[in-house]
Amino acid sequence: MSKKFNPKMLKSLRYLYGWTYEYLSKKTGISTIKLSNFEFGKDKPTLEDIAKLAWNTDVTTEFFYQKDLPQPFDESAMIFCKIH
């Protein structure tokens, strides 16, 4: 069984840090269009893309393959963090 990239994980991580596509693009070298397509499930990142994302966001590559958000990444908590 192959692993499947979970777009929600990238979106959640980006929201948690308050990063724009432009900021994450500069950080990773991945275009803003590709990042948006990854988040909306329109495109699948390569292993190289996932490695760049993991390295530059301080998570493991496995983070992007999780089916559910871990507790610290609860969406309601992210909204709270972003507002406050």
Rank of each mutant, 00 (worst) to 15 (best):
I33D: 11
Q66T: 04
A51V: 01
S31T: 13
A51M: 05
C81Y: 11
Y65H: 00
T20P: 12
V59D: 00
N37V: 12
P7Q: 07
D43A: 03
F80A: 05
T60C: 10
C81N: 03
K26S: 06
F80S: 03
S36H: 08
P70C: 10
L35N: 11
L24S: 14
A51D: 05
I33Q: 13
L16I: 01
A54P: 00
F38V: 11
K44Y: 03
N6M: 14
S31L: 12
K44D: 00
T57I: 09
M78W: 01
E62D: 13
F64I: 08
Q66G: 02
V59T: 02
E22R: 13
P72Q: 13
N37Q: 15
S2P: 14
E39Y: 10
M1F: 05
I50D: 15
L10V: 14
T61F: 01
P70Q: 08
H84V: 04
F38M: 12
F5M: 13
F40P: 01
F40M: 13
T61R: 00
I50C: 11
F64E: 08
K27G: 04
D68R: 02
G18H: 13
S25L: 04
K8F: 09
Y17V: 00
N6L: 03
K42W: 14
E39D: 10
L10C: 14
L53A: 02
M1K: 10
Y17G: 00
A51W: 00
F63G: 08
E22D: 04
L13T: 02
K8T: 08
I50F: 06
D43I: 07
I50V: 14
N37A: 13
D49P: 01
F40H: 10
K8E: 10
K26Q: 04
F73S: 00
K4H: 03
F64Y: 15
T60K: 08
L35A: 12
I30H: 05
T28F: 13
S36C: 08
I83S: 12
M78A: 12
E75W: 03
K34R: 14
L35G: 15
G41N: 15
T60I: 05
F5W: 05
A54W: 02
P7W: 14
G41W: 15
K11G: 02
N37P: 14
L24Q: 06
K52S: 15
K67P: 02
L10M: 15
C81S: 07
I30F: 10
T20A: 09
D49S: 05
Y23S: 01
K34M: 15
K82D: 07
W19F: 03
M9G: 04
T32G: 06
E22K: 09
F5G: 06
M9R: 11
S36P: 06
K67V: 11
K8C: 05
Q66V: 02
E48N: 02
P45Q: 07
S12V: 12
A54D: 09
F40I: 09
S2Y: 01
S2L: 09
W55Y: 01
K44Q: 06
G29H: 10
K8I: 11
A54G: 01
N37K: 07
F80C: 03
E75T: 02
K52A: 13
E39L: 13
T28R: 06
E22M: 10
L13A: 00
Y15N: 09
Y23M: 04
D49C: 09
T57C: 12
E48I: 08
F73G: 03
L24G: 11
L47E: 11
Y21T: 08
D68W: 10
F5Y: 11
E22A: 15
S2V: 07
D68G: 01
N37I: 09
M9C: 07
